[in-house]
Amino acid sequence: MIKEIFRIILLSVLVNNYVLTKFLGICPFLGVSKKTDQALGMGAAVTFVMLLATAVTHPIYYYVLKTFKLEYMQTIVFILVIASLVQLVEIILKKYIPALHKSLGIYLPLITTNCAVLGICANNIKDGYGFINAMASALGCGLGFLLAMLLFAGVRSRIESSDPPKCFRGVPITLVSAAIVALSFSGFAGIIETLFA
Protein backbone atom coordinates (compact mmCIF):
# COMPACT_ATOMS: atom_id res chain seq x y z
CA MET A 1 0.00 0.00 0.00
CA ILE A 2 2.62 2.54 1.14
CA LYS A 3 4.94 1.23 -1.53
CA GLU A 4 2.27 1.67 -4.19
CA ILE A 5 1.59 5.25 -3.10
CA PHE A 6 5.29 6.03 -3.11
CA ARG A 7 5.62 4.48 -6.55
CA ILE A 8 2.78 6.60 -7.95
CA ILE A 9 4.19 9.81 -6.49
CA LEU A 10 7.66 9.13 -7.82
CA LEU A 11 6.26 8.12 -11.18
CA SER A 12 4.35 11.35 -11.59
CA VAL A 13 7.10 13.62 -10.27
CA LEU A 14 9.98 12.29 -12.33
CA VAL A 15 8.92 10.00 -15.15
CA ASN A 16 5.55 11.38 -16.19
CA ASN A 17 6.30 14.96 -15.25
CA TYR A 18 3.21 16.86 -16.39
CA VAL A 19 5.01 19.88 -17.76
CA LEU A 20 8.12 18.41 -19.28
CA THR A 21 6.93 15.11 -20.69
CA LYS A 22 3.17 15.40 -21.02
CA PHE A 23 2.96 19.06 -22.03
CA LEU A 24 0.21 20.05 -19.64
CA GLY A 25 0.24 23.47 -18.01
CA ILE A 26 2.79 24.99 -20.36
CA CYS A 27 1.33 28.52 -20.13
CA PRO A 28 1.97 29.03 -16.39
CA PHE A 29 5.24 27.11 -16.72
CA LEU A 30 6.58 29.60 -19.25
CA GLY A 31 4.65 32.62 -18.04
CA VAL A 32 5.29 32.67 -14.29
CA SER A 33 8.73 31.11 -14.07
CA LYS A 34 10.70 34.34 -14.31
CA LYS A 35 11.33 34.77 -10.60
CA THR A 36 11.98 31.99 -8.11
CA ASP A 37 9.47 33.24 -5.53
CA GLN A 38 6.74 33.53 -8.16
CA ALA A 39 7.55 30.06 -9.42
CA LEU A 40 7.33 28.71 -5.87
CA GLY A 41 3.98 30.39 -5.23
CA MET A 42 2.53 29.21 -8.49
CA GLY A 43 3.80 25.67 -7.96
CA ALA A 44 2.35 25.52 -4.46
CA ALA A 45 -0.98 26.88 -5.68
CA VAL A 46 -1.14 24.32 -8.49
CA THR A 47 -0.34 21.47 -6.08
CA PHE A 48 -3.05 22.66 -3.72
CA VAL A 49 -5.66 23.01 -6.48
CA MET A 50 -4.76 19.65 -7.99
CA LEU A 51 -5.28 17.91 -4.65
CA LEU A 52 -8.51 19.79 -4.02
CA ALA A 53 -9.88 19.17 -7.51
CA THR A 54 -9.08 15.46 -7.35
CA ALA A 55 -10.63 15.16 -3.90
CA VAL A 56 -13.87 16.63 -5.25
CA THR A 57 -14.12 15.32 -8.80
CA HIS A 58 -13.16 11.73 -7.99
CA PRO A 59 -16.18 11.06 -5.71
CA ILE A 60 -18.42 13.06 -8.04
CA TYR A 61 -17.48 10.80 -10.94
CA TYR A 62 -17.91 7.53 -9.07
CA TYR A 63 -20.92 8.38 -6.89
CA VAL A 64 -22.90 10.74 -9.11
CA LEU A 65 -22.00 10.44 -12.77
CA LYS A 66 -21.43 6.70 -12.76
CA THR A 67 -24.49 5.95 -10.64
CA PHE A 68 -26.75 7.84 -13.03
CA LYS A 69 -24.89 6.66 -16.17
CA LEU A 70 -23.87 10.19 -17.06
CA GLU A 71 -20.20 9.51 -17.76
CA TYR A 72 -20.33 11.52 -20.97
CA MET A 73 -20.99 14.65 -18.90
CA GLN A 74 -17.52 14.31 -17.34
CA THR A 75 -15.87 17.21 -19.16
CA ILE A 76 -18.65 19.73 -18.50
CA VAL A 77 -19.12 18.76 -14.86
CA PHE A 78 -15.41 18.67 -14.07
CA ILE A 79 -14.58 22.06 -15.53
CA LEU A 80 -17.54 23.71 -13.80
CA VAL A 81 -16.78 22.09 -10.46
CA ILE A 82 -13.10 23.05 -10.65
CA ALA A 83 -13.82 26.61 -11.72
CA SER A 84 -16.36 27.28 -8.98
CA LEU A 85 -14.24 25.50 -6.38
CA VAL A 86 -11.22 27.64 -7.13
CA GLN A 87 -13.27 30.82 -6.98
CA LEU A 88 -14.76 29.72 -3.68
CA VAL A 89 -11.37 28.94 -2.18
CA GLU A 90 -10.05 32.29 -3.32
CA ILE A 91 -12.94 34.13 -1.67
CA ILE A 92 -12.52 32.18 1.57
CA LEU A 93 -8.77 32.78 1.65
CA LYS A 94 -9.22 36.47 0.96
CA LYS A 95 -11.70 36.84 3.79
CA TYR A 96 -10.17 34.68 6.50
CA ILE A 97 -6.46 34.15 5.79
CA PRO A 98 -5.34 37.32 3.96
CA ALA A 99 -1.66 36.51 4.48
CA LEU A 100 -1.95 33.21 2.66
CA HIS A 101 -4.09 34.84 0.00
CA LYS A 102 -1.37 37.35 -0.65
CA SER A 103 1.31 34.74 -1.22
CA LEU A 104 -0.74 32.01 -2.87
CA GLY A 105 -4.20 33.32 -3.67
CA ILE A 106 -3.21 35.65 -6.46
CA TYR A 107 -2.26 32.64 -8.53
CA LEU A 108 -5.57 30.87 -8.04
CA PRO A 109 -7.65 32.53 -10.79
CA LEU A 110 -4.86 31.72 -13.24
CA ILE A 111 -5.26 28.03 -12.52
CA THR A 112 -9.02 27.89 -12.89
CA THR A 113 -8.84 27.01 -16.53
CA ASN A 114 -5.44 25.37 -16.47
CA CYS A 115 -5.19 22.23 -18.53
CA ALA A 116 -2.93 20.52 -15.98
CA VAL A 117 -5.67 20.61 -13.34
CA LEU A 118 -8.41 19.32 -15.63
CA GLY A 119 -5.89 16.87 -17.06
CA ILE A 120 -5.05 15.30 -13.70
CA CYS A 121 -8.74 14.79 -12.89
CA ALA A 122 -9.45 13.22 -16.27
CA ASN A 123 -6.30 11.08 -16.21
CA ASN A 124 -7.07 9.71 -12.74
CA ILE A 125 -10.44 8.52 -13.99
CA LYS A 126 -8.89 7.12 -17.17
CA ASP A 127 -6.22 5.21 -15.23
CA GLY A 128 -8.89 3.75 -12.95
CA TYR A 129 -7.13 4.86 -9.76
CA GLY A 130 -8.93 4.45 -6.42
CA PHE A 131 -9.35 7.52 -4.21
CA ILE A 132 -6.06 7.14 -2.27
CA ASN A 133 -4.04 6.44 -5.40
CA ALA A 134 -5.69 9.32 -7.23
CA MET A 135 -4.74 11.69 -4.41
CA ALA A 136 -1.18 10.35 -4.49
CA SER A 137 -1.03 10.92 -8.21
CA ALA A 138 -2.38 14.48 -7.81
CA LEU A 139 0.23 15.20 -5.14
CA GLY A 140 2.97 13.78 -7.33
CA CYS A 141 1.90 15.79 -10.36
CA GLY A 142 1.70 18.98 -8.31
CA LEU A 143 5.15 18.40 -6.85
CA GLY A 144 6.46 17.58 -10.31
CA PHE A 145 5.06 20.86 -11.56
CA LEU A 146 6.68 22.70 -8.64
CA LEU A 147 10.02 21.02 -9.30
CA ALA A 148 9.93 21.85 -13.00
CA MET A 149 8.97 25.47 -12.27
CA LEU A 150 11.77 25.91 -9.73
CA LEU A 151 14.40 24.32 -11.95
CA PHE A 152 13.32 26.39 -14.88
CA ALA A 153 13.24 29.63 -12.89
CA GLY A 154 16.92 29.05 -12.24
CA VAL A 155 17.61 28.44 -15.90
CA ARG A 156 15.70 31.53 -16.91
CA SER A 157 17.65 33.84 -14.68
CA ARG A 158 20.69 32.81 -16.70
CA ILE A 159 18.91 33.36 -20.01
CA GLU A 160 18.04 36.91 -18.99
CA SER A 161 21.71 37.85 -19.00
CA SER A 162 22.61 35.99 -22.19
CA ASP A 163 22.71 37.45 -25.67
CA PRO A 164 21.00 35.20 -28.25
CA PRO A 165 20.42 36.16 -31.92
CA LYS A 166 17.70 38.78 -32.33
CA CYS A 167 15.01 36.49 -33.72
CA PHE A 168 15.56 34.06 -30.84
CA ARG A 169 15.15 36.65 -28.12
CA GLY A 170 12.27 36.22 -25.70
CA VAL A 171 10.02 33.24 -26.21
CA PRO A 172 12.03 31.12 -28.71
CA ILE A 173 15.16 30.91 -26.54
CA THR A 174 12.96 30.12 -23.54
CA LEU A 175 11.43 27.20 -25.41
CA VAL A 176 14.78 25.91 -26.61
CA SER A 177 16.13 25.94 -23.06
CA ALA A 178 12.95 24.21 -21.89
CA ALA A 179 13.86 21.50 -24.42
CA ILE A 180 17.18 20.98 -22.65
CA VAL A 181 15.49 20.80 -19.23
CA ALA A 182 12.98 18.30 -20.67
CA LEU A 183 15.87 16.29 -22.07
CA SER A 184 17.34 15.92 -18.59
CA PHE A 185 14.00 14.62 -17.33
CA SER A 186 13.87 11.94 -20.01
CA GLY A 187 16.87 10.44 -18.23
CA PHE A 188 14.50 9.30 -15.48
CA ALA A 189 12.64 7.00 -17.88
CA GLY A 190 13.66 3.65 -16.41
CA ILE A 191 14.01 4.68 -12.78
CA ILE A 192 10.71 3.22 -11.55
CA GLU A 193 11.35 -0.24 -12.96
CA THR A 194 14.75 -0.29 -11.35
CA LEU A 195 13.62 0.99 -7.95
CA PHE A 196 10.51 -1.13 -7.60
CA ALA A 197 11.62 -4.27 -9.38
Binding site: G31, F168, R169, V171, P172, V176, A179, I180, A182, L183
Partner: peptide, 29 residues
Protein backbone atom coordinates in the same frame (compact mmCIF):
# COMPACT_ATOMS: atom_id res chain seq x y z
CA UNK B 1 9.76 12.83 -31.51
CA UNK B 2 10.49 13.02 -27.79
CA UNK B 3 9.12 15.68 -25.46
CA UNK B 4 12.27 17.77 -25.61
CA UNK B 5 12.19 17.75 -29.40
CA UNK B 6 8.75 19.31 -29.23
CA UNK B 7 9.99 22.28 -27.23
CA UNK B 8 13.00 22.64 -29.51
CA UNK B 9 11.09 22.56 -32.80
CA UNK B 10 8.48 24.97 -31.44
CA UNK B 11 11.14 27.45 -30.33
CA UNK B 12 12.97 27.29 -33.63
CA UNK B 13 9.73 27.65 -35.58
CA UNK B 14 8.76 30.82 -33.69
CA UNK B 15 12.24 32.21 -34.23
CA UNK B 16 11.90 31.43 -37.94
CA UNK B 17 8.57 33.25 -38.14
CA UNK B 18 10.13 36.22 -36.36
CA UNK B 19 13.00 36.23 -38.82
CA UNK B 20 10.88 35.78 -41.96
CA UNK B 21 8.31 38.42 -41.10
CA UNK B 22 10.87 40.71 -39.45
CA UNK B 23 8.68 40.90 -36.40
CA UNK B 24 9.82 42.38 -33.14
CA UNK B 25 10.11 39.21 -31.09
CA UNK B 26 7.59 38.82 -28.32
CA UNK B 27 9.19 39.11 -24.92
CA UNK B 28 6.58 37.17 -23.02
CA UNK B 29 3.68 34.85 -23.44
Amino acid sequence: KEASGGFFVFGVLIALVNKLFKREPKKEF
